[in-house]
């Protein structure tokens, strides 16, 4: 079983990495890039919520800060995009720490934490929409200048590999985390915070580290978004859509599993394409179908795709 656990993610990443060798269709690559950006965002969410049990509904705050950090550092200060990307990640991690410090110290748990994250994301959205430094409502444009040192690539495949590389890196990190002491503490807090505390776990510290890491990863997703689409405004960066996509991907795939968010994002976006394909002309019908399939998926996969797969495996061995 342990071997399978390591093997599966490897196979998934390898399979994904080979796709550009079989298809040069940019439609497919574009679809995959966006799905993987959502996957990365969901991987970030998964650290805090999946493993740590701190259910955020405001990861848009981190996505947006990562994106704005990346974009503004280039557009306002002329910093190299790769460095700007790192700055964006740093900014998101910092915001995660501050938000975490404020809310965890106040003892916010469960739905209360969920709601406070939602509110923080909204505050950022309103502020970034109004401030002139951020470009206000007009948003920020990253200058189109296709050079690798600019984090812009002529070929969609290269960008795809970069995104996939980061996703794989986070996947590895998450798998290590599962087996680390930090990971054990985090899971202990999820299962029973009081008991973890009684056992001597520094609950606040562990939660803070988790939210910083989580925010950094989701921030990276934001940075990638802006490098790919080269345009950003407050509703894209901080809008509820990304919070929703993020947690849907993670939960559908299987929260608290390393591979879950990646599978979830791919499944979710695949589903979106599928329903778009079958629904035809009338606007809205495809999304109705999508919503229905989402409910069915939840009804038949209690612990997400990974949970379903595991049960199938266990059942197969009996």
């Amino acid at each position: 079983m342990i071997a399978l656990r390591t093997l599966c993610p490897l196979l998934v990443v390898a399979g994904l990495a080979l796709i550009p060798a079989f298809t040069s269709a940019n439609t497919t690559l574009n679809f995959l890039v966006f799905a993987l950006i959502v996957a990365l965002s969901a991987q970030g969410w998964n650290i805090l919520a999946g493993y740590g049990g701190q259910f955020s509904f405001g990861h848009a705050a981190f996505f947006g800060l990562g994106a704005y950090g990346t974009a503004l550092a280039q557009a306002r200060f002329g910093i190299n995009p790769w460095v700007a990307f790192a700055a964006g990640i740093g900014l998101a991690a910092l915001a995660g720490t501050v938000i975490g410090y404020l809310s965890f110290r106040a003892g916010l748990r469960g739905s209360y934490f969920t709601l406070v994250t939602l509110a923080f994301a909204e505050v950022f959205r309103i502020l970034f929409n109004a401030a002139s430094f951020t470009g206000g409502a007009a948003g920020v444009l990253v200058k189109l200048d296709v050079r690798p040192e600019n984090f812009q690539f002529a070929s969609r495949s290269v960008f795809y590999w970069v995104v996939l590389g980061i996703v794989a890196l986070v996947l590895l990190l998450t798998m290590r985390l599962e087996r680390s002491r930090f990971g054990a503490w985090l899971i202990a807090i999820r299962e029973n915070e009081a008991a973890a505390k009684a056992l001597g776990v520094d609950v606040l510290m562990v939660k803070l580290q988790a939210i910083a890491l989580s925010a950094a990863i989701t921030g990276a997703a934001g940075g990638l978004y802006v490098q790919y689409f080269l345009y950003l405004d407050a509703n894209i960066g901080f809008g509820p859509w990304i919070s929703v996509e993020t947690l849907m991907a993670a939960i559908i795939g299987g929260a608290g599993t390393a591979l879950g968010p990646v599978l979830g994002a791919l499944a979710l976006h695949g589903l979106g394409q599928l329903t778009k394909g079958i629904a035809g002309g009338t606007p809205g019908i495809d999304l109705v179908l999508f919503g229905a399939l989402l409910i069915l998926a939840v009804a038949f996969m209690r612990d997400g795709i990974i949970g379903r797969l595991r049960r199938l495996l266990v059942w197969g061995r009996r």
Partner: peptide, 9 residues
């Protein structure tokens, strides 16, 4: 915007 981009592709 990403919806628009996907359609262009």
């Amino acid at each position: 915007p990403e919806g628009g981009t996907a359609e262009v592709e």
